[in-house]
């Protein structure tokens, strides 16, 4: 419990900043922009329809649902998840890597506590941070959607909204687990950002390329494409095969992290 509390305290500021930033952005986007687009759908469609199809595909703009509240939210979500993924990977990798980079692993591991307990406490604290960010984003998004639709008369179905918002948390879990694995796998990570930014953007670009090329198999290669917003909006459900894939990958990453962390030699600081 002491390690868990220490981690929570250590990450409280950055967690609050991420919560405020993502909540603020979603509120601004939904309240500030949705009414403008939805007030004159035809003109907006013409404007966006003028963009090349490849550009629309790359940026996941679908003319059929872009001007509905869920379509608009899903569109913003496709970019917000990148930010969420970076936050999750930062904390997943950082909470472990900082002990090696700051050479404090000597202090921590020479204490009477097992390595699995240390790792569990760190991952639990990272999970709390990730869930808090996801929750802040979803709650702000929900309130903003209610405000944005107050003039259009659209109904914001809670179940669909919750499922769409859950994609943020699921993507974050993937990157948090991957970050933790990288922290024990890659020696001498100086800062978590040095790992999280290239990793997250690589997966994001793979997803964009898949959209441009129209290759559906790419969906298995990047968590950004595991949860199709159109499918969620139309079925109020996730596609089970991708949900299983996500679960398997997260379990494998976390299990491998435990094994490698247990085996790791903490060499003398020099």
């Amino acid at each position: 419990m002491n390690v868990f509390l220490r981690e929570i305290v250590a990450y409280r500021k950055s967690t609050l900043i991420w919560m405020a930033s993502l909540a603020g952005m979603v509120a601004l986007f939904m309240i500030g922009m949705y009414p403008a687009f939805s007030s004159d759908v035809e003109a907006s469609k013409q404007m966006i329809g003028g963009l090349p199809e490849a550009v629309r595909a790359a940026f996941a703009i679908s003319l059929s649902n872009f001007f509905t509240i869920f379509g608009f939210y899903a569109y913003f979500l496709s970019f917000a998840t990148v930010a969420g993924a970076i936050q999750a990977m930062n904390i997943g990798a950082g909470s472990i890597a900082k002990e090696f980079a700051g050479k404090t692993a000597d202090f921590l591991i020479s204490k009477p506590v097992t390595r699995p307990k240390i790792l569990t406490a760190k991952l639990a604290a990272a999970l709390v941070s990730v869930v808090a960010v996801s929750l802040a984003f979803a709650l702000a998004g929900y309130v903003a959607a209610q405000i944005a639709t107050s003039s259009t008369g659209e109904t914001v179905t809670t179940s669909t909204f919750v499922l769409l918002s859950l994609t943020m948390l699921l993507i974050q879990l993937f990157f948090m687990a991957l970050g933790a694995l990288f922290a024990v796998l890659i020696p001498k990570i100086k800062t978590a950002v040095a790992v999280s930014l290239p990793t997250v953007f690589t997966f994001f670009i793979i997803g964009m390329l898949g959209e441009i090329l129209g290759n559906d198999k790419v969906r298995y290669m990047t968590p950004f494409k595991f949860f199709d917003s159109m499918y969620i909006i139309n079925n109020t459900a996730f596609e089970s095969r991708y949900l299983v894939l996500e679960a398997v990958l997260v379990v494998v990453f976390v299990a491998a992290t435990y094994v490698l962390f247990q085996r790791k030699d903490i060499r003398a600081a020099a």
Binding site: A10, G102, K103, T104, D106, F107, S110, K111, P112, V113, A268, A269, A270
Partner: peptide
């Protein structure tokens, strides 16, 4: 480790 006190040559703390 409950019964051990350890001081390394180089110390690093938070």
């Amino acid at each position: 480790r409950q019964e051990v006190g350890y001081l390394p040559s180089e110390v690093f703390y938070y």
